[in-house]
């Protein structure tokens, strides 16, 4: 079996970030991992060294994987030797995203995002914080 060649005439990518991959060419395996704490604050105050991934189980918990026990006789017949794309325009590849022009064996990507929102609340109000949220919503 001969491999297929990917032909792309023109590609424009604006942004590749947070452990993403943009690869031109063949590879064996691509396994990007991205962990992120997405913090939103009512006021602009951010220290550069904040956050500890170990404090949140979401970053360490094992993820369920699809197990394929059945044996599959896989036959691939490539009638055409190439895949042709004229033009690709991508704004952003982010958080373990994979953009590959070429062939590989395994792609195994994982991204974990923990959202935290911090609001100041109303110091003059005597209603509880949760009621306060409803009043704002």
């Amino acid at each position: 079996m001969f491999k297929r060649t990917s032909i792309v005439n023109k590609i424009h990518v604006t942004d590749v970030s947070l452990n993403s991959v943009f690869e031109i060419g063949d590879s064996w395996s691509i396994k990007p991992r991205a962990n992120a704490l997405a913090v939103q604050r009512e006021f602009e105050r951010f220290y550069g060294d904040e956050g500890d991934f170990d404090a949140y189980p979401i970053f360490t918990m094992p993820l369920p994987k699809a197990l394929i026990n059945e044996h599959i006789n896989f036959t691939r017949v490539n009638d055409s030797s190439s895949i042709y794309v004229n033009k690709i325009d991508i704004t952003s590849v982010s958080a373990s995203g994979v953009l590959l022009i070429g062939s590989t064996k395994v792609i195994d990507a994982e991204s974990r995002v923990k959202h935290i929102r911090q609001l100041q609340g109303d110091p003059n109000s005597d209603i509880g914080p949760s009621n306060n949220v409803n009043a704002k919503a």
Binding site: V8, A95, T104, I107
Partner: peptide, 12 residues
Amino acid sequence: GVTSSSVFLVGD
């Protein structure tokens, strides 16, 4: 956007 463990693949 290709984001949060997504794939755009031109190939096999």
